[in-house]
């Protein structure tokens, strides 16, 4: 029973990683940068959601989604746009870029501590919270179901934006070859702004859901983003299915191993899994044929 319950718990955790992973994959797709700051945005958004207890949950969610766009643009201005001018070397070796996003994540974490303290906070649920029994003593919360639904929604929305819309084609053109895209009439900088605005909306959505279901604290910034990026590495980051499957694998591993061997063993197991993937199949389980390794 414990194992089954752990698996059910793991689905919730994995869904959270998958959601954050979708956001990170979105940035990767558009700017070729793995942005650790995504973890910070998600957690900050969650903290804001959790501390706006006076608002009706649905209104809060709508407000957050509206604020998400300018917030995403702000991150773009501070990190990637600023970095563009200095990159003399291919992105995958541009470790300074990684440092910038890690530093930004740390700054966002510090802002979280400064504004909200280190306490774990929960937001009022849009869908009333309940615990459902699956029989045999196994329970699942509406939160887990909500997370899984959010993954499906986020996956479909990402797929639509990236694969099916004109915007997506333009974004991809930019990420593949900015110069050619510019020559063929795509307004590159506008595209990047738009992408980050969308990213902000996605992150704020994830933040709100996380605050409702698992609770948020600034302590979580790196835990969440590292879990999500692990998922990206395992799943392969360029397609929608990669982050989702990868995130679920990471979440299930963490939950099941943690239940048996504790947090430390779970962390080591995740790291081991990722190292094996990196050394054996660096492009992940669902590599995009046209892409290089993640990162």
């Amino acid at each position: 029973m414990r194992e089954l319950q752990s698996l059910v718990n793991g689905v919730g955790l994995g869904a959270l990683y998958a959601l954050v992973g979708l956001a990170a994959a979105f940035v990767l797709r558009v700017t070729k940068i793995m942005n650790f700051a995504v973890g910070g945005i998600v957690v900050l958004a969650g903290l804001f959601a959790a501390s706006s207890s006076g608002l009706p949950p649905a209104l809060r969610l709508i407000l957050l989604l509206l604020v998400g766009a300018p917030a995403g643009v702000l991150v773009h201005l501070v990190s990637t746009r600023w970095l563009e001018g200095r990159s003399q070397r291919p992105q995958e070796h541009d470790l300074g870029g990684v440092l910038v996003t890690v530093a930004l994540a740390t700054a966002l974490q510090g802002l979280g501590y400064l504004l909200f303290g280190s306490d774990l906070r929960y937001a009022t649920s849009v869908v009333p919270a309940a615990t459902l029994s699956l029989g045999g003593g196994i329970t699942v919360t509406t939160g887990t179901i909500l997370l899984v639904a959010a993954v499906a929604l986020g996956g479909v929305a990402s797929w639509f934006v990236l694969e099916r819309s004109g915007l997506g084609r333009a974004l991809r053109a930019v990420s593949d070859d900015a110069t050619t895209a510019r020559l063929s009439g795509v307004r590159v900088s506008t595209m990047a702004y738009l992408a980050y605005a969308l990213l902000g909306v996605l992150c704020f959505f994830v933040g709100d859901v996380a605050a409702e279901v698992v609770g948020v604290t600034p302590d979580n910034v790196f835990h969440i983003i590292v879990g999500a990026l692990f998922g990206l590495v395992i799943g392969g980051g360029d397609r929608i299915v990669g982050p989702i499957v990868g995130g679920l694998i990471v979440g299930l591993t963490e939950s099941v191993v943690n239940a048996r061997g504790g947090q430390f063993t779970a962390t080591v197991a995740q790291l081991g899994l990722v190292l094996v993937i990196l050394l054996v199949a660096p492009r992940g389980l669902f590599p995009d044929r046209t892409s290089r390794a993640v990162g």
């Binding site: 793995m34 650790f36 995958e92 070796h93 541009d94 470790l95 870029g97 990684v98 440092l99 890690v102 790196f222 835990h223 590292v226 990026l229 692990f230 590495v233 962390t267 995740q270 790291l271 990722v274 190292l275 990196l278 660096p282 390794a293 993640v294 990162g295």
Partner: peptide, 14 residues
């Protein structure tokens, strides 16, 4: 790659 090394070393720190 730089990103992968960053991710792995952050995790080693954890």
């Amino acid at each position: 790659t730089g990103f992968q090394l960053g991710l792995v070393t952050i995790s080693v720190g954890t």
